[in-house]
Design a protein around this nucleic acid. Sequence first.
DNA 1: TTTTTTCAGAAGCAAAAGTTATGATAACTG
DNA 2: CAGTTATCATAACTTTTGCTTCTGAAAAAA
Lengths: 327, 327
Amino acid sequence: MITGAVRTMASGRQRATNFELRHLRYFVALVEERNFERAALRLGIAQPGLSQQIFSLEAIVGLPLLDRSKRSVNLTPTGQALYEDATKIIAQADATLSLIRRVGRGEKGRITVGYVASASYSGILTEMLGSFRRSLPDIELQLFEMEMRQQLQRIKDGDIDFGYIRPPAPIPSDLETTTVLKEPLVVAMPAGHPLASRTAIKLLDLRDDVFITPRQPPDVGFHANTLSACGEAGFKPKLDLNGRDFTTIASMIAVGLGIALVPHSMNCFGLPGVRYVPLVDNEITTDLAVVYRKKEASPAVRAFITHHRDLSGQRRTKNRMHGKSLT
Amino acid sequence: MITGAVRTMASGRQRATNFELRHLRYFVALVEERNFERAALRLGIAQPGLSQQIFSLEAIVGLPLLDRSKRSVNLTPTGQALYEDATKIIAQADATLSLIRRVGRGEKGRITVGYVASASYSGILTEMLGSFRRSLPDIELQLFEMEMRQQLQRIKDGDIDFGYIRPPAPIPSDLETTTVLKEPLVVAMPAGHPLASRTAIKLLDLRDDVFITPRQPPDVGFHANTLSACGEAGFKPKLDLNGRDFTTIASMIAVGLGIALVPHSMNCFGLPGVRYVPLVDNEITTDLAVVYRKKEASPAVRAFITHHRDLSGQRRTKNRMHGKSLT
DNA sequence: TTTTTTCAGAAGCAAAAGTTATGATAACTG
DNA sequence: CAGTTATCATAACTTTTGCTTCTGAAAAAA
């Protein structure tokens, strides 16, 4: 039998509310202060309220947490076990709050980036991503090599956040592009080609050669670049659209299947039997651009966009000052 | 400017309540159902209440969690981040509840056990602890080799829960003891002692030898055992109380400083130059007992106590059946 | 378009948290 | 060993707030 006096709050059944962080916060304060009065003071409530909440917690747990044989705050083994976990749960809840506030400020998050294979040759991808990572190290970057048109679709769909492409391309109306690099085109030709030893070539001199381009629709990417460049030079090129990417195109050139217009930065790819020769037509260039959603919700991605706009703005200014020497 | 109608619930400042598990539970339900109506149903509340709580959560976080541009439940990146953590916090809270309920049922906990060094020789300590561990593997056992009197004090103080001792000892009134093993005493003597090659010795034959005993008060442990055994045999032994424990006593015997009465189980300690010879006085025995608090709060420790009482009861029954052959 | 679905707002109710006042008793203290 | 103090529990009451029902507005579907 229980002690004579009926303690309705203690022995009477407690209304069974839900387990809440409040219970844990109160319990932790009580354990740490080892005194209801002081704990209540620390919590900014009156002492009886704390008493009630502790009873409520005991009702939820279904076990006594305090040894009430003496007029002091002594934990039962159960209470001790709860205290150890309670601090952890509270800490985790606090950590979560501050984490998602950091997500809100764009200091934390995940960005998925697509890129065409040729984007990595110029080094600008590494440069852009590297400086971004240094400024916001807690943002996770995921990179996917991907065809241009696939990128556009998946950015639109929200599957990925960002893409590196080579214009021209049919940009959907809800996507935005920014050019981050403009580089001259050079001619990639077999080492045995009659013009391979020249220091520079006029594009028109290549009117009888076969131009290998990536397997793409005629209005997109390098295919389009090649067509328009030759068009400007005054001829319609013979085409072979069987290249998959620049590395296979380079191999095709090495075995003598044709020539190609490629970005200047391709010359890092020194396949034997392939020569890269500059064009005298200096204004023939190719762009590297980034694509992203116009209305971007994620603060992290917005920061990434801003970073790209800032850096490509800087680069353009610098290049203007140095007299546009893009080699 | 915001849309014409003033949305007090949405745009009006939300009373800033505390961050509670309720917010997380509601938010998780909403995210998983992707629909306020269904989520509210699952939570057993009406839909507007859920709406309000989600707004309240957004006010606490300080950031929008849902994209309200459309009439559908779409998470913002912040909301996504919160969802991932929210499930973790809820899971941890649930785990804590079930954990401490297990503590309450005595299936989980920590027990600290003290033991006198000689307790480990008989193998009963390993046996008792091993079988307990097999039956309740989630209870953590911590072992401390400790002098008997220190054990009694620390069990009383609540520093440790349980002790293995060798009676007799002054047991405080709030502690309880149970004998778990009764074993015969044997004589440990130098190999060169005149009686060392006997198969059994009468204790009285040793009345002129020096008995080495552990450095203890006269009413405690082996000191007391030796005194009472010799007293029963009819003589008052010459004593040397400089032994620290049985291993140093054995070394002292080996170099010829005296003899000692030791537990039969000590013969596992085969130091060169020491012989263990049985006594013909077969009723001369020593006990190994366990000590614990009479009023023990911890369910884990209570389970441990019960286990010891059960097992030593079994052993006694078995021994009676086998004719008390304690060798 | 019309209808349906779905989320938000207003007002009120009811439950639960919290308050003040007080009681009971363990723990000091002279 | 009283007498006092400290400390926790209880009762009764107030306030807060979570939740309800009813209703509105707008997007999505037909």
